[in-house]
Nucleic acid binder design. Sequence first.
DNA 1: CTTGACTCTCCCCCCAGGGGAGGCCTTGAG
DNA 2: CTCAAGGCCTCCCCTGGGGGGAGAGTCAAG
Lengths: 268, 268
Amino acid sequence: MFAIGEFSRLEQVTVKTLRLYDELGLLPPARVDAQTGYRHYSSAQLPRLNRILVLKDLGFDLAAIGRLLERDLPVAELRGMLALRQEEQRAAVAAEKLRLRRVELALAELERNPELMEILVKTGKAQWLASVRATIPNYQSVGQLCGQVFAALGAKAFKATPIAIWHDVEYRESEVDAEAGVLLDSPLEVSAPLLCRELPAVEVAAYLHRGSYQALPGAYQRLSRWIEASGWRIAGPAREVYLHVGYPVRQDDETYLTEIQFPVERTV
Amino acid sequence: MFAIGEFSRLEQVTVKTLRLYDELGLLPPARVDAQTGYRHYSSAQLPRLNRILVLKDLGFDLAAIGRLLERDLPVAELRGMLALRQEEQRAAVAAEKLRLRRVELALAELERNPELMEILVKTGKAQWLASVRATIPNYQSVGQLCGQVFAALGAKAFKATPIAIWHDVEYRESEVDAEAGVLLDSPLEVSAPLLCRELPAVEVAAYLHRGSYQALPGAYQRLSRWIEASGWRIAGPAREVYLHVGYPVRQDDETYLTEIQFPVERTV
DNA sequence: CTTGACTCTCCCCCCAGGGGAGGCCTTGAG
DNA sequence: CTCAAGGCCTCCCCTGGGGGGAGAGTCAAG
C-alpha cells in the first residue's frame, strides 16, 4: 500500500492528477481511510494508471478513457475507437500543417512588404442574393448594374449589402460577365430582370481591401497567389462585397472597404 | 454605424466574441450608448477586426494580438513575433505527427495482438542511486546483487525501490555487465563495493511488464521495436525497475510488476 | 400599442488539472 | 513524551476563448 505521494512518484504523476482520477472514477484508490480520508493505492493499480496515461498520450480525453477502461470492452470496440482517434489525429496534423504554411507565408511576405497579408478562409452561412446579371463593358461599370438593383428593390434593400460576382474565369478588358446584387437574409419576390437565388454556404478566401478600386487588380493577384500557396484551390467565381462605399460613388476613396472573396476547396 | 449583431454578421463572428474583444480592449466599439449600453460599431473598424481574426488564425493568443495591435509597433517586432510563432508552430506540427505515429502504431499492433502496447515516454526527475556493479553469469542472478545492496544498506533502504541497469548493449547469454541498486531521493553515504551516484533526469521509454520474468526478453524486443517505430532512438543502457516483487523472489509470479526503461532521444 | 427581435449584464460551463488556504494526520528526533 | 516538519485532506479560484442561458431593458415595424 502506498500513500498518494509515493504512488504518484512511481509513475511521475502529480497528486492533483490522482485525486482528479479518483473523483472521475477512473482510478479509485484501493482503500480510503474512513477516518482521515487518506487515499491508499496498491501496486496492483499501477497497470491501470499506466493504461490511463498511455491512452491520454494517444489523445483520448478522460471521458473516452473511462469508457475504454470499462470491463469487458470488446477488442473490436477498442479498435473502432482507435481508428476514430486516428482520423481525428490525421485531421489535427493536417490542420497544424496548414497553419504552419500560413505562418511561413506571412513571414515570407513580410520580407517583401511591410504589411501583413490579411487573408482569412471562412465558412459563410447560406444567404440569399437578389441580383441582375449582364455583360458590361468593364469592371467599373458594375456600379450602374448595382444602381439598377437598388432602383428595382427600392426601400426593401435599403440597408442590404451590395455585392458583385465576376463569372469570367480570367481577367477581361471588355465584355465582362458580371452579376450585381444585394445580400439578404431571406428570399424576396423580385421581377425581371432581377433574379433571387440562394448562395450556398461555402468556404471562401477573403481579403479585405481598403481604399481605391484602382488597386483591386493587384489585390486579386495577391489573393490568388496566397490561395495557391496556402493549400487551397479556387472553386468558383470571385465576389466583391462592398462593405463601405460613399455616395456618390467614386473610384478612389481611402475609406472604401471591399472584401474580395474566392470560393475555395482544399488541395491538401 | 452598425449594431453589434449586424457588425458580427459582416465578418462571421459571434456577438459573444465581439463583447469579449470589447472587454479585453482589443476592439472597443466606436460608440457605446451611455443610456442603454448598446454597442455601435463603424465600418472603419472592420480592418481591425479582420486583423484580429487573421492573427488568431496564425495561432496568436488574444494577449499577443493585443500587443501586436498597439500603435507604432515596429515591423521588426512583428517579424520577431512571427518568427517565434513559426518555431512554436513547427514544434506543434512535430508533436502532432509523433502522436499520429503512436496512434497508427497502436492500431497496427492491435491487428496482431489483442492487447495494447502500453508504452510511454516520460521525463523523469533526477534521482540518486546506491548500487553495486559486477559481471554476473546471467540476467537472473541480478537478484543476488540486489540482495547485497539491501544487506549493506540495512534499514536505510527499507522502502526504497530496487532497480537494475544492464550496461551491455546487446543481449548476452553469460558475463552480463550488471548494476543493481536502489533509488533514493537524496544522496547517501555508502561504503565499497557500493557507490552512490546521481541518475540525471532523462527521457525514458517505459513499458510496464506484468508477470513472470521469463517473458522479459519478449518485452525488451517489443519495446525496442516501438522506440524505433515511434521516432526515438535508444540513448543509454536499459533499466529494470522492480515495482512489485514478492518475497521470497521467484522467477514466475503473475503479480510481479517490472518497468523496463530505455533512455531515448528523438530522431525526428 | 404591441409584439417580436435585439441587446444588455451576470452567472455558470467546458478541459485537465495548477495554486494555494486552512486544517488534520503521521512520523522521526530529541 | 512532546514537538516540528512534512503529508494529506477538502474547498475555492484560475487557466483560454468563448458558449448557453436567465432576466430585464430597448428598438422598430405593423
